[in-house]
Design a protein around this nucleic acid. Structure first.
Length: 512
RNA sequence: GCCGCGUUGGUCAAGAGGUUAAGACGCCUCCCUUUCACGGAGGAAUCACGGGUUCGAGUCCCGUACGUGGUACCA
């Protein structure tokens, strides 16, 4: 950005219709990073103008997701603020005034076409060359509206309460162009854009009117949104021109899309390809359809926003791991890509792994505790848990991995991978472990060095290579071929558990 | 169909006329480790295509192809 005068104000404006998509969170994030970089405000506005699509709980869900990501709006329905209300349904009366102003100026008109009229028109005009006919300058003269009806007729119908909408009167043969922060010069021919509905029959505005009116009233300086909006940008530009003047219009930035394995990322891709798509778990209250979230899958919020930020933006350096603060510092809209980015779950996991490594055991602890608790492992000793986390965190990619990687520190393994030791098992080894248990039992100072030295000297005495005994020992204590140093594990779980686990394993081997 | 936007390895990407075309993820090999990881060293793999412009093009221009978005009284 060149020079920014006045306070930066950006907004994220979701409609409360369901879960929060990857792309949505990234839009929030870019908005937020940009605002905070310039010391500006981040506003959350709820675009609930379509009452038929309202979904219970969706708004709270959005707050929760943002909060989990570490992003708190400066203004929102929940947080309040000087430009409220922040829910468009509560601003309903406001929009009518502007729609009427447009009518007076000749930039909009009343239309009385019913749903059936519109369907009929589309059916009649539909052809191979024109599979989706638009309500535009070419056909509006055939419809029921202020152009084809007399003023008297129009007024009479309005007075009688005949349902009607207000449509924008798109000029013909006008070039509409604007300078997008990401795409730079973008231009459209007005004859390709249709007379969009501005005010619906129920009195609610459509997105097109509401976004312009609210961005103006809320003093938005920079409007970032997904690229799917680029096609309707000319409508918004025109509305700005007619209502408030182009010099008042915020700077637009149309963000590239996040793609799935096959085109645009959809919530179904998640279940299909085995990765989460929403920020947090979401179950649609109407259909009961469940969509998995990154949070529940075991992602750390730091990793989640980090991976999202890097999908479409990079700092220009080789650095890839950024905290929120670092991103705010480094972010620049100029370095946001034009092209869509395909989401790569493997790379996403790598980010999480990095963040697990970066985080200190203490900060991971509350979440690890929850993971264990969800599997009925109750941990009371925080100090002990801390030690365990430090021991295993390099082995965890997702937070949920902490269960498998640390459960054996809290209880005996349910299953022992005996197949891993059986091929090389013999009586000598059995005697070794029996004797080792006796030695451990009489040990007075339970520390790693002692445990290991006892093991090695006994092995030497028996003339068995220690390496051939370490794997069996590991299986006995852990259950499988993984985890930190065996003697450290024995040290942590204590003398009683160590001896007990060796004995359990020994009997299992014999019985097989 | 029409309109818009886009196109550097499998993926994320650096690159703003002259580079052996960075780096990361993933994959493979090796080292470390008598487990699994972490860490370290290597390797394979790329400028969609065709024309220009230029001494010289991934970089500029024009086409083509492909992808993607829109084409609702949804956002």
């Amino acid at each position: 950005m060149q020079n920014i005068n006045g306070k930066v104000r950006v907004r994220f404006a979701p409609s409360p219709t369901g879960g929060l998509h990857l792309g949505g969170v990234r839009t929030v994030l870019y908005n937020y990073l940009f605002a905070k970089k310039f010391g500006g405000d981040f506003i959350l506005r709820i675009e609930d103008t379509d009452q038929t699509r309202f979904v219970e709980g969706a708004e709270d869900y959005i707050y929760n997701c943002l909060s989990w990501c570490g992003i708190e709006p400066d203004e929102s329905p929940k947080h309040g603020g000087p430009y409220g209300p922040y829910r468009q349904s509560e601003r309903k009366e406001l929009y009518k005034k502007y729609a009427e102003e447009l009518i007076e100026k000749g930039y909009a008109y009343y239309a009385f076409d019913t749903q059936e009229d519109l369907e009929k028109m589309r059916a009649e005009c539909k052809s191979d060359e024109n599979p989706s006919p638009q309500y535009d300058s070419k056909i509006r003269m055939r419809m029921k509206n202020s152009f084809t009806l007399s003023t008297e007729e129009v007024n009479a119908m309005i007075n009688e309460g005949v349902p009607h909408v207000i449509r924008i009167n798109i000029p013909s043969n006008e070039s509409i162009s604007f300078n997008d922060l990401i795409h730079h010069e973008v231009s459209f021919d007005s004859s390709t854009v249709d007379d969009k509905v501005l005010l619906k029959a129920d009195g609610m505005p459509t997105y097109h009117l509401a976004v312009v009116v609210d961005d103006y009233l809320m003093k938005i300086t920079h409007a970032f949104r997904g690229e799917e909006w680029l096609s309707s940008a000319p409508v918004h530009i025109l509305l700005w021109k007619y209502l408030f003047g182009l010099d008042q219009m915020p700077q637009w930035a149309h963000l590239p899309l996040i793609l799935g394995p096959n085109g645009k990322l959809s919530k179904r891709d998640g279940a299909k390809y085995g990765f989460p798509v929403y920020a947090m778990n979401w179950t649609d209250p109407r259909s009961n359809e469940f969509t998995e979230g990154f949070k529940e899958r075991g992602f750390l919020p730091e990793a989640f926003i980090n991976l999202l930020a890097l999908l479409g933006w990079n700092s220009g350096t080789e650095k890839e791991v950024f905290s929120l603060e670092e991103m705010i510092d480094q972010f620049s809209i100029e370095r946001v890509h034009k092209s869509g980015a395909k989401f790569d779950y493997e790379k996403a996991k790598w980010f999480n792994q990095e963040w697990i490594k970066i985080n200190a055991a203490e900060s991971l602890l509350p979440e690890v505790k929850k993971v264990l608790l969800s599997k009925s492992v109750v941990v009371e000793d925080d100090e002990y848990l801390n030690t365990i986390i430090t021991l295993v965190k390099d082995r965890c990619v997702l937070m949920t991995d902490f269960f498998e990687q640390s459960v054996y520190f809290f209880k005996n393994p349910d299953y022992l991978d005996l197949e891993a030791i059986k091929p090389k098992w013999n009586e000598e080894k059995k005697y070794f472990f029996e004797e080792y248990c006796n030695k451990l039992d009489s040990m007075t100072n339970w520390n790693v060095i002692e445990i290991e030295n006892t093991f090695k000297s006994l092995a030497a005495e028996k003339n068995i290579k220690p390496g051939e005994l370490q794997l069996p020992m590991r299986i006995m204590l852990v259950g499988g071929k993984f985890g930190p140093a065996v003697f450290e594990i024995a040290h942590q779980i204590g003398k009683t558990a160590t001896i007990q686990r060796i004995n359990i394993a020994l009997t299992q081997i014999i019985n097989q």
